[in-house]
Design a binder for these strands. Structure first.
Ligand SMILES: [Mn+2]
Ligand SMILES: [Mn+2]
Ligand SMILES: [Mn+2]
Ligand SMILES: [Mn+2]
Lengths: 224, 224
DNA sequence: AATATATTTTAGCCTAATCTAAAATAATCT
DNA sequence: AGATTATTTTAGATTAGGCTAAAATATATT
C-alpha cells in the first residue's frame, strides 16, 4: 500500500502521532523541540507532508497539524517497530532501560516489516512494551486500555501501574526505588488537598509512599 | 577514535575492502557496479574519501583506490557488523539464507557498536559467519585462514569447504544439492585437463560430484 | 604508430533536509 | 483597543549524494 517514506518523514509522523494522540493539534514549536530541529525546518517539512499524495497531515497555517488516516497508518507502523524493538533490545539483547531508547529510535526506520514480524514472533506477539506502553497490532490497531491518571485517583480507589508520561527513564528509575513499576498494584490511602500529595499503598512495599502532584500527574494506571 | 562516517561512506569502504582483499586496486567501474550507482558518482565519492582527514582511501586518478589503514578499520568494523547480523538474522530470527543479505546490508550501518557486541555475545562470539565467511574480531583482526581456490586443487588433494565467492545465494543453493556446504570435507578424485572439470568425493555423498571450472573457481576450501 | 574502443573524470544540475535572518501573524498584557 | 511579546512562516543559503552529457585519458586493435 503505502509508498516508502523516508526515515525523516517517519520521525515527523511518529512525533505528531504522540503529540496528538490525546486530541488537539501538534504545533510547529512542539515538533521542533521533540525532533531537535528549528521551527523553520518543521514548517518546511509539514508543508511537504501535507502536499504528498495522499496527504499525510492536515496543515493549517499558524495552527499546526493533525494526521490524516494515511499519516496515522505510517505513524502506527513506526510506533509498532519502535516498541517491539524496545522490548527486543531489553529482553533478548539485555539492554538496560536507559540504553533502549536511542537504539530503538534509530532502528525503527532501518528494519523491514519482515524483521518486525520475526521479532514479534520471538517475543510472543506482545501487546504491551516497556513501561507498559501499548504496541499497535500487526494490522495497526491500538490495544484497548482503560487508563486514568494517578493524579485523579482518590482514597479508596486502586489500580495497576501502567506507564509513565513521555517514557522518561530518569523518572522511571526514581519510581523503581519505591517499588513502582508497570504491573504493580497500588491503592490510594490518603489525599492532601493543600499540596495535592497522594499517599499510596504499593504492592510489595511495607512503608506507604507519598508522591507530589508533579509526579502523580505523569503516571498512568489501569483502574480496577 | 574514528569519526562518525555516513552509511554511504561505509558502503563504499566495505565494497572497496572486498574488491581489494586479494590485492590490487578497486576500480571506479567495479565499485559503481557493486553499489549500483554511476561511475561519475563513484569518482565524486572516492575523491571525497581521499580528502577526508585522515584520508580513507589512496586515490590515483584513472587507476582506482586502495584503502588507507584508517579506511580499512572502518571497513572491517562494518564487515563485522554485517557478518554478525547475517548470522543473527538466520540463527535468532529464523531468516532464510536468501533474505539475510538485504536486511543485513541495511542494518549494518544502523546498529551501534554496543548492539554489535551484544549480538556477538548472544551468538557466542563467533569467528565465522554464514557460508563460513570470516568475521573480524572486536579489535578488527581478521581470523587467520589458509584458503585456496577449489579450482587449483588436483587429484589426491583434499580440504574443508569454506565459502563461496561473492556469497551468491543462488549458487549456494545449487551446491547444497550436492552436499556441498561450509564445513564439509571433500577430496579431488580426478581432473580433466580438457574441460577443467573436477571429480570430487564429498563427505556424506555416495556418488562422486563433477563440477565445471566456472563453479570450482568460485569455491574456497581450507586445505588439509 | 595510429586509430578505435572502453573507462574515468569534469561540469553542471537536482532533491532532501537542514540552517539563519527577516517578515508575517497570533497571543498576551495593560 | 493598542502595544508588546511569542510563534510561525518565508526567503535564501548550505551540504550530502546522486544524475546526465561531454571531455579527457587509458587500453586494445590493427
Ligand atoms: Mn489557534
Ligand atoms: Mn526515529
Ligand atoms: Mn592502470
Ligand atoms: Mn550497506
Amino acid at each position: 500500500m503505502s509508498a516508502a517514506y523516508s526515515g525523516t518523514h517517519k520521525d515527523y509522523l511518529k512525533t505528531i502521532y504522540l503529540l496528538t494522540v490525546d486530541g488537539g493539534r501538534a504545533e510547529t514549536g512542539q515538533i521542533a523541540e521533540k525532533l531537535r530541529v528549528t521551527p523553520a525546518s518543521v514548517t518546511d517539512m509539514i508543508q511537504r507532508l501535507a502536499s504528498e499524495s495522499p496527504p499525510l497531515v492536515d496543515y493549517q497555517k499558524y495552527h499546526g497539524v493533525t494526521l490524516t488516516s494515511e499519516g496515522e497508518q505510517v505513524a502506527l507502523q513506526v510506533l509498532r517497530h519502535y516498541r517491539l524493538l524496545e522490548l527486543f533490545l531489553h529482553e533478548i539483547l539485555g539492554y538496560s532501560w536507559d540504553k533502549v531508547h536511542t537504539e530503538a529510535n534509530r532502528l525503527e526506520h532501518a528494519i523491514s516489516e519482515y524483521f518486525g514480524e520475526r521479532v514479534a514472533e520471538v517475543l510472543g506477539e506482545p501487546t504491551r512494551g516497556l513501561y507498559g506502553s501499548p504496541i499497535p497490532s500487526k494490522d495497526l490497531e491500538m490495544p484497548h486500555q482503560n487508563l486514568v491518571c494517578l493524579h485523579d485517583l482518590r482514597p479508596g480507589e486502586s489500580g495497576i501501574m501502567h506507564s509513565i508520561w513521555d517514557e522518561d527513564p530518569g523518572l522511571f528509575r526514581y519510581l523503581e526505588k519505591y517499588g513502582l513499576k508497570p504491573g504493580v498494584k497500588l491503592s490510594v490511602l490518603d489525599y492532601s488537598p493543600y499540596d495535592h500529595n497522594l499517599h499510596l499503598q504499593v504492592e510489595g512495599q511495607e512503608k506507604e509512599v507519598v508522591l507530589g502532584a508533579s509526579v502523580t500527574a505523569q503516571i498512568f494506571v489501569e483502574k480496577e
